[in-house]
């Protein structure tokens, strides 16, 4: 069994690593992998090294135990022509029993040391020097990212510079969520009334995905994570872009009007227009490439479908359908499309 499992894992990794190579080139490419054994960050790599060690030790133990089990099944099964009577009764053996108590103790001791070492390397209590500080807030069922020093607020798609450590302060606005992008680092929970931190440093440009890993209600399964690592210059440009106020386009005035008259502005922030905080900021909505925390790619069609009734794409989510008619929908979508 263990052998089969291992070969399966190896085969799976070979196949996915050949697909993974082209990820960083195109924004919305399918075939992205979330394989924890393909790290692109120091902490995820340290976890991988330890994981291989542990996997190796456990696989070896498993192989030996299962082999002895199979051997004893084959060797000691009752045969039809075997001698009558009972086999000799062995009540135990002190030396053997001491051996199979002490050896596991030694293995366990080694594992403990290796574990403690990696915990100290990965679980930092202070931000690494020069880190980009971002506050991540979990909501049912989307992510809010606040770049405090830069004065930028965005949602669901975390943009970071390649090569620079990122120190995430993890908070929750409602229930427990968990931030898990396997190729960048292991998961850390976002617990209300409790401050957590995690960090990573993306070593190559690309899009790294993940999703909420702690059950958080109806749309737990539709709460995707997306981290985009960009070259430092591109990242700086992105920050500048995000700091701009929301664009105002006269042609979209009807939609803008609707946005302010209907309930939209109660929940959504558009800098200069509204300051809602219950839903994702829409100031630069169209700079993002997905909608509904990653449940669909963001374009005119999905946006229209979403506003008509969000439960088309994300059943159970907290945004209500505003029951707009076709004309209003077009106006609203037209307005949102200008928020670049």
């Amino acid at each position: 069994m263990r052998l089969a499992l291992l070969s399966v894992i190896v085969a799976m990794m070979c196949s996915s690593s050949s697909q993974g190579a082209t990820d960083s080139l195109v924004v919305c490419l399918p075939d992205t992998t979330n394989n924890m054994f393909e790290p692109v960050s120091q902490s995820a790599r340290e976890i991988r090294e330890l994981s291989w060690l542990v996997l190796g030790i456990c696989a070896a133990i498993g192989l030996v135990v299962e082999a002895v089990l199979v051997w004893s099944i084959l060797r000691f099964r009752a045969r039809p022509h075997a001698a009558k009577g009972e086999p000799s009764q062995v009540y135990g053996s002190n030396s053997v029993e001491i051996a199979w108590t002490v050896v596991p103790c030694v293995i366990v001791f080694v594992l403990t040391l290796a574990t403690v070492r990696t915990i100290r390397e990965v679980e930092l209590t202070e931000p690494p020097s020069g880190a980009l500080m971002v506050i991540a807030i979990g909501h049912q069922w989307w992510w809010e990212y606040r770049y405090e020093a830069e004065g930028v607020v965005t949602a669901n798609e975390l943009v970071v510079p390649v090569g620079r450590p990122v120190w995430l302060t993890l908070l929750s606005a409602d229930v427990i969520h968990s931030w898990w992008v396997p190729r960048l680092t292991g998961k850390t929970d976002l617990v209300p009334n409790w401050t957590n931190h995690t960090w990573f440093n993306a070593e190559q440009a690309g899009i790294y995905k993940g999703q909420c890993a702690e059950y958080c209600g109806t749309q737990h399964g539709g709460m995707f994570l997306r981290v985009e690592a960009r070259a430092p210059a591109e990242f700086a440009a992105w920050i500048e872009e995000q700091k701009q106020p929301a664009s105002v386009v006269m042609a979209a005035e009807q939609g803008h009007q609707l946005f302010t008259e209907l309930a939209c502005m109660n929940c959504h922030e558009v800098v200069g227009t509204s300051d809602g905080t219950f839903g994702p900021s829409l100031t630069h909505l169209m700079s993002r490439s997905t909608i509904g925390s990653g449940v669909a790619p963001l374009d005119r069609d999905t946006l229209r479908l979403w506003i008509a009734d969000p439960s088309n794409l994300k059943p159970g989510c907290n945004m209500p359908s505003l029951k707009l008619n076709d004309e209003e929908l077009d106006a609203m979508v037209g307005y949102l499309l200008t928020l670049r």
């Binding site: 069994m1 263990r2 499992l5 924890m36 995820a44 340290e46 976890i47 330890l50 994981s51 542990v54 996997l55 456990c58 133990i61 498993g62 135990v65 299962e66 089990l69 099944i73 594992l111 290796a114 574990t115 990696t118 915990i119 990965v122 679980e123 968990s178 898990w180 396997p182 680092t185 292991g186 998961k187 850390t188 890993a213 702690e214 059950y215």
Partner: peptide
């Protein structure tokens, strides 16, 4: 016999999950 064979595997993945950093990846 099936119990022993399967429980060994479940026990060993349990040891793996006790390795905290490994668990950070695979918990939940």
């Amino acid at each position: 016999t099936g119990f022993v064979a399967m429980f060994v595997l479940g026990g060993l993945t349990g040891v793996m999950l006790a390795v905290v950093p490994f668990d950070w990846q695979l918990s939940d």
